[in-house]
Amino acid sequence: MSITLADARVVTPGGVHEGWITIEDGRFTHIGHGTAPRDGLGLGGRYVVPGFVDIHTHGGAGGSFPSGDPEEARRVVAFHARHGTTTIMASLVTAALPDLARATSALADLCDDGLLAGIHFEGPYIARSRCGAHDPGLLRDPSTAELSELFKAGRGHVRMLTVAAELPGGIDAVRAAVSEGVIAALGHSDATYEQALEAIDAGCTVATHLYNAMRPLHHRDPGPIAALLQDERITVELVNDGVHLHPAMVRLAHTAAGTSRTALITDAMGAAGMGDGVYRLGSMDVEVSGGAARLVQGGAIAGSTLTMDVALRRAVEQVGLTLPEASIMASLTPARVLGLDDRVGSITVGKNADLVVLNEDLTIHSVMHQGAWIPTS
Rank of each mutant, 00 (worst) to 15 (best):
P66N: 06
S289L: 10
D361Y: 11
I88W: 04
R82E: 15
T333F: 12
L5R: 01
R233F: 07
T208R: 08
F65S: 02
A133C: 14
G275L: 06
D231S: 06
T262H: 10
G34I: 05
P216S: 09
L41W: 13
G339M: 13
G303T: 00
L150M: 09
G40D: 08
G339D: 04
E232M: 03
T262M: 03
P66E: 12
A117S: 15
Y47E: 06
T57Q: 06
L167V: 05
G223S: 14
S129N: 10
R130G: 01
S283V: 03
Y279H: 13
P324Y: 02
M89Y: 00
D190N: 13
L312Q: 08
R155N: 08
V178Y: 01
Y279S: 09
R159I: 05
I23R: 09
A173G: 04
L281V: 03
T144L: 03
G282T: 04
P247K: 07
L97Q: 08
A6L: 08
G118E: 00
D172R: 12
T22V: 13
V344I: 15
D39N: 09
G44T: 05
G118Q: 12
P66I: 07
E325Y: 04
V278M: 02
A61P: 01
R155S: 10
Q297L: 07
A61N: 11
I21V: 15
T144I: 07
V356T: 08
G137H: 00
G42N: 08
G26F: 03
M249R: 02
A127Q: 02
A81L: 14
E24H: 12
H83I: 12
R220Q: 12
G19H: 04
Q297N: 10
L138W: 00
I55E: 01
W373I: 05
A202N: 02
I31D: 04
R82C: 14
V239E: 00
A81V: 05
R46N: 09
A292P: 01
A326T: 12
A199Y: 02
D354Q: 11
R27K: 14
A90L: 11
I347C: 08
A353D: 10
G40P: 05
V48P: 00
L295S: 07
T85K: 00
T262V: 15
M214F: 01
R336T: 10
I183R: 03
Q230F: 06
G339F: 11
I55C: 00
V243I: 15
D361V: 10
A213S: 11
V337L: 05
M284A: 09
A271Y: 06
H56Q: 14
G15K: 06
P222N: 05
S148C: 06
S331I: 11
G156Q: 12
R75I: 04
V206C: 07
